[in-house]
């Protein structure tokens, strides 16, 4: 269990689904992979998902659990969709009013890290119209990809394809400083938010102790 929650990844997930609708884990994973690789080459760090070779290419289980957690806390809408091709139900995600509200509230942070978000916009513009399957095909078509600069097929199952944290002395890293970290933690937790709202109401109604 990590001491520090990767809120940067959660923010980027919300940013992704504020721009793209009706996509699932596979799409998010492949898009994050392309984004991470692009940033890696520029010596930047954005999302920090360690990408492992899975059945369908680069993947990190954490992406799925992050998306589910965001949906559970009502920052994304989650639907189950049946896909004939795989004869399976898949989670697909959509923005909701909380997605937009959250991103608006952290606009200052996005501006401060515009070098990362601008590049993410470019990636979204280039690949946002693909679906997960198309992105997978695209990644498999690359002659050189990942840390070892070889075809995806040449990586072993379970092998690390790319880990943004391997980058030594990055030119820029999207990392929340402490005051932002603490703010994001509360913004993304409806219970904490409600707790503080209750405290405000209590002082309005005179429920306090003066010392």
């Amino acid at each position: 269990m990590s001491e520090r929650i990767q809120y940067e990844n959660l923010i980027l997930n919300l940013y992704l689904f504020s721009r793209i609708k009706n996509r699932g884990n596979m799409f998010a994973a492949k898009l994050f992979y392309l984004f991470e690789e692009d940033l890696f080459k520029k010596r930047f760090i954005g999302p920090k998902y360690k990408m492992i070779k899975f059945q369908y290419g680069p993947y990190n289980n954490r992406i799925r659990s992050d998306l589910i957690a965001l949906a559970k806390n009502n920052f994304l809408k989650l639907d189950m969709v049946y896909y004939d091709d795989y004869d399976l139900d898949y989670n697909v995600y959509f923005k909701n009013k909380n997605t937009q509200k959250f991103l608006k509230e952290i606009d200052e942070l996005i501006q401060e890290n515009s070098v990362i978000f601008n590049r993410f916009d470019d990636i979204l513009n280039e690949f946002g119209h693909y679906n997960g399957k198309d992105l997978k095909k695209y990644i498999y078509s690359l002659e050189k990809t990942g840390k070892l600069e070889k075809k995806i097929e040449e990586y072993e199952m379970g092998e690390v394809i790319l880990d943004p944290c391997d980058l030594q002395e990055p030119k820029f890293s999207f990392k929340l400083e402490e005051d932002w970290y603490d703010t994001i933690e509360i913004l993304l937790d409806p219970k904490l938010k409600q707790q503080l709202q209750n405290a405000i109401e209590e002082v309005q109604h005179g429920n306090f102790t003066r010392l």
Binding site: S2, L10, A69, V203
Partner: peptide, 11 residues
């Protein structure tokens, strides 16, 4: 107003 503990995980 309030005191809160930092989380270990986001669920």
């Amino acid at each position: 107003f309030d005191i809160q503990k930092r989380s270990f995980d986001y669920r």
